[in-house]
Amino acid sequence: MTRFIELLINGLSLGSVYALIALGFVVIFRATEVVNFAHASLLLLGGYVTAVLHADLGFVGALAVGVLAAAAVGALIELVLLRRAKAPRQVVAIATIGIDIVLMAELSRRLGTQVLSLGDPWREKVVTIGGITVAQTRIAALVVAAILIGLFLLAFKYTSWGVSMRAVAEDSETSALMGIRLGRISMSAWAVAGALAAVAAVFITAFPTPGLDRTSSIAALKAFPAAILGGLDSVTGALVGGLLIGVTEALVGGYQNDLTFLGRGLGDVAPYVVMIAILLVRPSGLFGTREVSRV
């Protein structure tokens, strides 16, 4: 039972980090109808900047710069691909794969074989409550993700930005008729998504993961099934999808010794199995309203 609760907490924590990444995905898709395949490299970029700067600026300062860098690159992608090139949405989605490859290649070159620490203050410390042992980073991930998601939801519901965002997602032409500046909304969506990914990078690479290396973005890719199974255009979907994937991964990974007949590394595969199973039943995802036929 103790093991189950530990796994569950770890899963929820992991899931809340996936939810942060998936949220960025959904925000971009709602505002611009583009599936951003460069999301994982934005995350790696944010993480890399934080890792390089934390010795000089301290963790918080470095993270702030990392968040800004990822947000700026996100906004730049929007500016170049959507605003300047005015390419059709499907073409932009494919172009983001190109951007992902370029960013990833450069970051891999810089990283080489290093494993960098992001300098987070929690390190390998654990907390033990009533026999349940959990890493502090996992608690921090849950708390930070919950706060950010909460702030996002409030902004989405009540601020002019959030209302504009929802209006544009529903009918961009009419939003323009009402005076909403589509370019600003679109660019802010990409920047917010980049910023969320950079924060997620901290918890993707923190203990018990050894640190940031070339493969960190693979972990970020699990937010793909999270966003897709939730429904690419649903904020609620991103949150539920993230948690579902996180918990699945943690539980299947934790109990894989009992599941050896299915082979090793099942925890990494499980998220995709869950995604496929859900899409078979609900093609537009759990909470989605549009089928993802644009990609």
């Binding site: 209302v163 504009s164 209006a167 529903e170 009918d171 009402m178």
Partner: peptide, 18 residues
């Protein structure tokens, strides 16, 4: 009309003039 059907009446009016 092209109203924003998934949003409330109040929110529709907000979009008209923030």
């Amino acid at each position: 009309r092209r109203i924003f059907g998934r949003m409330s009446v109040e929110e529709n009016l907000r979009v008209g003039g923030f």
